[in-house]
């Protein structure tokens, strides 16, 4: 008797989210990035469609970063002191397909940049680079509620991904994103129930589920990676089983977590592998979008993704 393969067919499908708008769609981007759309568990190509690869976005800041270790700073050289030059370097030299700009300089403790200045920066950035943008606040809720709407408006029609909306602070951001034609990042603290609840709250305000990406919040390798890993597996299983309110693609802030670790400060190799292995382990649990910091880690993870998807598309 032949061995019968155990095949799992799923009724659900992860929603497809497009980031960036070209001229014909009302934006000015040179390319767009599409994530999600799979109806299979990660990397099981024989069971269902996996139409889009996981994508790496390079993280840049609107100011020169203060707390990044030298191993990371030196990878960018002088450009890191000028955010626009830094952005161009990511695109031209490291072939970034999209950028994730963190508006750290708007934080009250890091320069307290005004909403007008933040908006101006986004406009400049959009004119300097033609890749799609992810825009992230500084994490100060009150200030983010002022600057993110300004950034959203400055990027109107460019179909950016903007975040992060959290359970007790999402309304302002949802309203802006709706008005300006962007998509939103919904962040939950390693908690599947909050992730689900927040998606419902956001979609109740009229933003369709196809415009939401879940940030499950992660820990780096050795720093609680396994919690996010399992939350993501559980959420994805629920999504594939038909729960539309959890069927959003995932975004993971890999670089931010990996470079906080003690190991990343031991040697540049250790730092790069820490970021790379954090990334690929979360690809295994289903991430669609990876925000990374070290160009070499990004390049290695890109190689890994190419290997995975070779002959599969």
């Amino acid at each position: 008797m032949e061995t019968q393969l155990v095949l799992e067919k799923w009724p659900g499908v992860v929603s497809t989210v497009v980031i960036g708008a070209k001229k014909e769609a009302g934006g000015s981007r040179g390319n767009t990035v599409t994530i999600g759309g799979q109806n299979s568990l990660p990397l099981l190509f024989k069971e269902g469609a996996i139409p889009h690869k996981p994508i790496i976005a390079f993280e840049i800041w609107d100011i020169a970063p203060q707390d990044w270790p030298d191993e990371l700073i030196s990878a960018y050289g002088k450009a890191i002191n000028d955010p626009l030059a830094w952005a161009e370097k990511c695109v031209n030299e490291f072939k970034a397909e999209l950028l994730c700009v963190k508006m750290q300089g708007t934080h009250p403790d890091f320069g307290n940049k005004s909403p007008e200045k933040a908006a101006k920066f986004i406009s400049l950035l959009l004119s300097k680079v033609r890749v799609p943008l992810i825009i992230i606040g500084s994490g100060d809720d009150a200030k983010d509620n002022l600057i993110l709407p300004a950034c959203s408006e400055a990027a109107r029609g460019e179909r950016c991904l903007i975040g992060c909306a959290v359970q007790d602070n999402y309304k302002t951001l949802v309203a802006s994103v709706l008005a300006d034609g962007h998509s939103i990042i919904a962040e939950s603290p390693i908690d599947i129930n909050i992730a689900k609840q927040l998606n419902i709250l956001i979609s109740d305000m009229g933003l369709s589920l196809e415009r939401i990406v879940i940030n499950p919040t992660i820990g780096a390798l050795g720093y609680g990676l396994e919690y996010a890993y399992s939350i993501m597996e559980r959420a994805r299983l629920a999504a594939l089983s038909g729960d539309k309110t959890l069927a959003s693609p995932f975004i993971c802030f890999i670089g931010q977590e990996a470079w906080k670790s003690k190991e990343a400060r031991v040697s540049v190799e250790q730092g790069i592998i820490w970021e790379a292995l954090t990334a690929t382990s979360l690809i295994q649990s289903g991430t669609d979008l990876l925000i990374m910091r070290h160009p070499q880690a990004a390049q290695k993870v890109n190689n890994y993704i190419e290997n995975l998807f070779k002959d599969k598309e």
Binding site: G222, L225, Y229
Partner: peptide, 20 residues
């Protein structure tokens, strides 16, 4: 067998095999 490579692999194993 570089220690930085092996440490990363063993740390991942520790994470994955931690009892949730």
């Amino acid at each position: 067998w570089s220690s930085w490579e092996v440490l990363s692999i063993l740390t991942l194993r520790q994470n994955i095999y931690t009892d949730p």
